[in-house]
Write a protein that binds this DNA or RNA. Sequence first.
DNA 1: TAAAGTCCTG
DNA 2: CAGGACTTTA
Length: 825
Amino acid sequence: MPDHDSTTLLTRQNKRRRVDIGVKRTVGSVIFPRAQETLLDAMNQSHGPDQDGNCSLVSHGHGATNGDGEKSNVLRKLLKRANSYEDTMMPFPGATIISQLLKNNMGKNGGSDSGFQGSGALSSGGSEIQAEDACSNSSRDSPSDCLSPAPPLPPPSSSSNFGRPPPPPNHMSHSSSQSLSTFDLERLSDEHLRAKRARVENIIRGMSHSPLVRPNGSDHNQEGNRENENGSSNSNDHRVEDGGHKSSRRGDCPSLLSSPGSRGGVVGIGEVYRENKRKQRLPQQQHSFTQLVCSRQEQRQEERRQLKLQLEDMQKQLRQLQEKFYQIYDSETEEEEENIVNGEANRGRDREEDGNLSEDSIRSDGLEESHRDRGRHSHDDLSELDPGLFLDRARALLREQALIDGEMEEDADSREEERNGEMVIKRRAVAGGGGGGGRQLAETLKQELNCAVSQVVDTVVKGFSSPKQTASHHHGCHSSTPAAPSSSSNSSSSCPPPFGPLPPLTPDSRFGGGNLALSLNSEGSPTPNYHSSNQRLHCFGDVIIPSPLDSFGGLSSRLSGVPTPNDQTEALPLVVRKSGGSGVETTNPSLPPPPPPHHPSLHPSPLTASLSFSPPSFRHPFPLPLMGYPFQNPLASHGSGGGYPPGPKDHSRVSPDSMDITRETVSLRTKMASLGGGHMGHHHHRQSSPSQHGPEGLALSLIKSECGDLQDMADISPYSGSTIQEGLSPNHLKKAKLMFFYTRYPSSNMLKMFFSDVKFNRCITSQLIKWFSNFREFYYIQMEKFARQAINEGLTVVEDLTVSRDAELFRALNMHYNKANDFES
DNA sequence: TAAAGTCCTG
DNA sequence: CAGGACTTTA
């Protein structure tokens, strides 16, 4: 420490004590979670009459009675005590808040907890490797976050004193010190077991793809151990020197959170741990993210391969059918002709080219000519088919084909098509009745079939190569064949039919999805998915994206002391390292030559469409869960509008919340679409076909296209038109601001995805990071301000802290981040 | 040492 | 918001 420290330090302290320099601060999330929650709600609230005004949706009445006075005191102390807002962390044992929230939500939404689990599992399923790594790692040194069953973070302990510098002698110390030896033993074995279990679980998960397969039965014991573990580690490396020096916030925070009487010291510990592990966790997250992406890509490729195989099979089958048909038809015609011609001399033998045509020459009626032609031209000439019948047939065929297409898209198995084809053929045969017309019909059918098959193949291939194109293609197709209800059109035009009526939107549900899940867990067994933010990211994301709302929502959970997975307390690595295959970019063969300017692309190749982890579905490259939040837009949005991934992933688990959010997101997205990098707008119209849908459809189409944009960018859009900017424009700033509400600590991947129209280099990345840093600063300052103000106004109970739309905080934040009201509020 | 944070200043 | 100082982490 240079001497300047002594001098500067003082001055600094006068203003704002520098605490925990260089360490990400989680104040925002800790402080006034409720306020944030409500604020968020307010900000995100739709203008619906029901939700206008105050947004305190959380019921206050619940217990935690013992803590109130204490809490308020603590709060005061904190605020008064130091100028550092870091110290203002709320010690509230807020778990109850969250749980309350959850309960409310549950009541309203009918238990939507599973959704998150599902998503989490989903993500984990996608990245077994990563998970395993994480797990193993966690077992070794950082037990806390891992998707594995092992309970991520032990609930923070609250016994510590508020802000007291030396957190060491906490509850932890009591328990751990006393039974340290036994504890150690247990811990060792536990860790071992955990690691093993984690691996097994991951494997199973990967195999089953079933998100719910969560073997974490009840590892309460482990949790306890872990708790202890964390605690011990904390005590070890927490250097807390409060007196005027930089105090480690990490140390302080946790202690602040906990109040003596509150639910077990868990909260404090969890907090500490989390803060402590700041960077350690991040890499893992990043890692998981990239891994997830990779795995998804692989998955997709695999699917693609399978689909191709399917197509080939289908084609073969079709051919066979056609052959059969011909055989049958020929035999019929032969009989027919024999009857007709009878003893007539057959002079046409000389001309016969194949068995089928041998009879043609015999016939003297008008058809003969055509038949002969057909014989000569093989099966290519349709010109002479009788128009009426043929047209009808053709139309029917097309319709069926469309249906088939749809089915294929839905990942229907080939049998379906085969069946259809068969049916068609049979019908045709029957209809044809064996007359000359029938023959022609057969010809046309043959050709049609061929065409159809080829079309299907093309469609599928195209679909894989560029989902967007297929989407539009399908639309066109369906529009031309109204008779056939196209699943795609349905899905695109109406929100989420597959899931039925959406639960009423409640701010809580909208933004508290993660929290919700968390809290649910917290209620009973603390199995908080630590990674939920990551998971969400993964899941959602394909791109994942740590919750934007986490910034707010996470707060609440944090306050509650329940480790919120969604809490985006950890900064995600902003820069993706190109090294070691894990990097997404490295896996990007399709990317254009320019290696240095790493172009953000999560898609290794256009065809693999890595982003979509979902099963083979053209229209829903992105699993719904992935798109729960507004800012996941590009990626997430795609599927949101258009139904849900039909694939293996069970949508049943998709949380309604996410859907709600998605829905709400639409407006934002549409606005967003016009925002930011020009190319976004530019692409939109490429394929959006608003005219085909209602207003909703329009929005959705926009979303879709937006999504497509992202993909394009990622894939290096085929239509090069996309303009990749070298720098960041004001629009990007705007976008970043909005994005800030989605995530306070965006990973570099995320940034790249969201700013897909920007050519990323170190500078750009740094700038973006800086932006977010600034955002955070402002945000935290505002929060602090609000907190102080509230306290000055005599606020004593956290539950009473609400942020109305009129609130200064709300206005300030909205003004700062959402000047143009791009985000509907 | 680079990256990613925070804090402070302009 | 940008720059710089500084810290922490990997």
